[in-house]
Design a protein around this nucleic acid. Sequence first.
DNA 1: GTCTATACGGCGATAGAC
DNA 2: GTCTATCGCCGTATAGAC
Lengths: 186, 186
Amino acid sequence: MKTKEKIIDESIKLFADNGFEGTSMASIAKQLGFTKASLYAHYENKMALFEGCLDKIADEQIEFTTQIMKDPKLNKAHDKLYNLLKNCSLIVSEKKYSFFNRFYYMPPIELKDVIESRLEKATITCNELIFTTIKDAVNNGEMDNQLSVEEITNSYKCLMNGVSCRVDTYQNFDSIWKIFWRGVKA
Amino acid sequence: MKTKEKIIDESIKLFADNGFEGTSMASIAKQLGFTKASLYAHYENKMALFEGCLDKIADEQIEFTTQIMKDPKLNKAHDKLYNLLKNCSLIVSEKKYSFFNRFYYMPPIELKDVIESRLEKATITCNELIFTTIKDAVNNGEMDNQLSVEEITNSYKCLMNGVSCRVDTYQNFDSIWKIFWRGVKA
DNA sequence: GTCTATACGGCGATAGAC
DNA sequence: GTCTATCGCCGTATAGAC
C-alpha cells in the first residue's frame, strides 16, 4: 500500500478517537513510525490530510451501502434493510464508522461546512438507495401501503442513527428490527 | 445567579459546540466578560470545570425525564413515551443536549471514564423510569404482551438515540413515533 | 475576585541538511 | 522523503499587585 493511503488509514483511527483538535500531526506521524516533518512531505497541512480522510470515508460509505442494497442474493426489501441495519450496528466498533459518526453528527463548528460538503455525495447516494428499496416494497405489497414511503424512510434512518451511536448498547439488535418490521409490514 | 453557576452554564454551551480540546479557558472567560486568570479563582483547573458541567447535565437529565414520566396529566404509557421522545427530538438544538450527546456518545478517549462515571446515575435513573413505564403498559394491556419489556425498552432507547443525533433531520418526528407505536401496541 | 504579566509546554508549519 | 532544529502562536496554569 502507498504511504499516502497508510497515512489516511492511521489518521482516520486517531481522528475518530480524539477528534480534530485532539489529534496532533506529531501523534499521527509517531503512529506511522516517522516524524511530523515527514508528514508534510505527503500532505500540505492538517486540513488537507483531514479532507483526505473525509473523502475516503465517503467512498467507503457508498461502497458499503451499495454492496448490500444491490446484492443479488437479497431479493426482499426486508432482507436488504435488515442486513444494512445489522451491519451498521455491528461495525460501529470499527474506527472508520466512529469517524463518520463523530464528524457527521457532532462536527466542530469551524469544520461543519467542509465536512458536510465532502460527505454530501455519500449521504445522498445512500439515502436514494434506501428510498428506492422502500418505495418498491410499498408498491409490491411487502410493506403496508397505508404508510408513505417518506414516513418509512424517515423512520428507518432514525434507527440507523440510533444503532450507530454506541457500540455497547446494542447487543440486542434483533428486538429493534423486530418492532420496526411489525410497524411497517403489510 | 452565583458566578460559579454562570460559569457552568456558559461552559456547557462552549463545550457543546467546540468539544473539550476545542474550548479554551480564555474563550470561556471572554464569554463571561472577564479574564482566564479570574476563572481559576472559581475552578481549580479545566478538568474541575468540566466535571462541574457533567454534574449539572446529569441533574438536568434526571429532572427532565422524571418531570415527563411522573406527570399526573399523562396517564397512558403512550402519552408519556410520546412526550419524552418528542421533547428529546425538539431540544437537541438546545446546547445542554448537544453537550450530553457529544460527550456521552462520542467521548474523547482520555475523558471516557470521567464522563461515564459522572453520567452513570442519570442514565440508570432514566432507564429505570422508561423500563417501569413500559412494564406497566405490557401488564395492563396497552402494549402487546407477546413482546418482552426488554425488547420494547431496547427499541425505544434506540429511537431516543436516533432522534437525539441531528437536529435538522427530524422535522418529521411523528412518522417515527407512528411506526414505533404500530410495532408495539396491543 | 479581578487584573497584568509571565512561565512552560505543545501545537502547526517551515528551513535546510542528507 | 526523511531527519533535526527552529519559528511563532496559543494553550493551561500561576504569581503577585490592587
